[in-house]
């Protein structure tokens, strides 16, 4: 189970690094956070899972979207 989720995380990481549309990269990054929160739950680290879910899906996404709104959605 953990290995499967890790493979999914690697695929999402590669996608978020090669995508031309930065909004897609940010969504993939927040999906990585959610999947790693799932892995933390599977490994009995509930405190870390709560923090990672709140930070990764909430705060980081808001900050990235703010930055993209002030700059550009297209990568170089």
């Amino acid at each position: 189970m953990t290995e499967m989720l890790l493979v999914l995380i690697i695929v999402l990481a590669v996608f978020s690094l090669i995508s031309r549309d930065l909004i897609h990269s940010v969504i993939a990054l927040s999906a990585i956070s959610l999947l790693s929160a799932l892995i933390f739950t599977l490994h009995w680290a509930f405190d870390v899972a709560i923090t990672e879910a709140a930070v990764g899906a909430g705060v980081t996404t808001i900050i990235f979207v703010w930055a993209l709104k002030h700059t550009s959605r297209k990568d170089i």
Partner: peptide, 23 residues
């Protein structure tokens, strides 16, 4: 901005390493 995303990925990988080893 991709460098910042990469920084987040490295952070996630290290946190995952510690949690998985500790369990």
């Amino acid at each position: 901005i991709k460098k910042v995303i990469a920084l987040g990925i490295v952070n996630t990988s290290v946190v995952l390493l510690f949690i998985i080893s500790g369990s």
